[in-house]
Computed example of a mutant assay.
Amino acid sequence: MAPKFRAVPWKRNLQKIPEELLAQARAFGSDILFVGITKTLAPNEIEQTPLRQLGIPQAEGEVSEIIPADDMGKYSRRNKHGWEVVRDDLPKITKTQYWESPNFGDASRYGTHTHYWTREVYQREIHEPRFYSIQAKTVKVNAAGDRVVLIRLKQEISRTSRTFEDELLFMLNLLQENCGGAEVVSSETAEADYIRTINLDWEVFPPGNAGEVIERLTGGRSADMALRGKVEERVQLFSRLTPVAYLKGAAGFGSYIGAKYADDLVVFENVNYGNALYVLYDNWEDVSKRSRLDLLKGTDARFDRLPHRTGWDEAFEKLLRSEKRKRGLK
């Protein structure tokens, strides 16, 4: 049986944040910091260890950037694919799940029919992937060819965040898995710039014809045809249920698209990640103010998640029509 993760010549993970790193972070003058480490590396270390995946530049001043491979460790996998936590320490909740099955074993000839069950289940915490990238900057090269390299996560973090220690542990482990070390570094990033990288603002568009909506949600870009095709599919699906508005993540979060059917009935998806659609029942005013990391914070007691398995779109339509009827909507 193949190993779950590739072998590394260093300790892979930290069980908790080292106290000296927490003390160092608390002593910084700025609330904004990042996770990084400076290493002096011989050419053979760079080429013959897992550090090779970082693509460390040869020339001084050059920078490489990658999203770590998911076989580097648990946190690298979570960074790309997200994860779930079953909260068996919390009371169970009532959930209804829908799915489609082929008629007589052949959906292409005979269509499908809907199954559903309602039962008490443990609550789940859903964590979306972070997609944090690792940058490697060659600061200096000596006569022997050794490189002094700053290796860091591109994303900053704020000490004032309510999830600071959880997210810091995630970041430290992600860098530890990929280069065998991790420290905290005070950042010169302005707070306003940091907020722009983490806050998920939304652009709200009124309904229009499908072509207009697609242009708005894609920003008129046609280069990424696969992404555009996915947006077109979602617009067709959303439009069948008559939304009052379409939603798009603003600034650098254009991969989030969705639709609003009522103040307490909103659907969205990260089309770059694209393995599930989410139906939220909180007030839209609350949803719109959350950060990207807080968007699904908590448990699935307040939202439904529809993984993209066979028949998910038909199950989604049935769920939305049921929720609209509860609200007296057509």
Rank of each mutant, 00 (worst) to 15 (best):
V139F: 01
I46S: 08
H113T: 06
S76H: 03
V8T: 15
Q97P: 00
R234V: 01
R290I: 03
A210S: 00
D264M: 00
Y98F: 07
T49L: 05
R290D: 08
D71H: 00
E65T: 09
I134H: 03
L150N: 09
W312G: 04
R302D: 14
G29H: 15
T118P: 00
A143I: 03
R221P: 00
Y98V: 03
E183P: 00
E120I: 02
P207T: 02
E47A: 11
L51R: 02
V141T: 15
G29L: 07
G219H: 07
C179S: 10
R152T: 10
I157W: 07
R240L: 05
V35E: 06
T40Q: 09
Y132L: 11
L33T: 08
L295K: 01
E215K: 14
V231H: 08
V63N: 08
T96L: 04
R216W: 13
I126W: 11
I32C: 07
K80G: 10
A262T: 04
Q176V: 03
R12T: 09
L227N: 04
I198Y: 12
S222N: 11
Y75P: 06
K95R: 13
E62L: 13
P43W: 01
H113Y: 12
N272T: 15
R52L: 09
R87K: 11
V35H: 09
E203Q: 13
N173H: 13
L241I: 10
L247E: 08
Q123A: 08
A136G: 04
S101D: 12
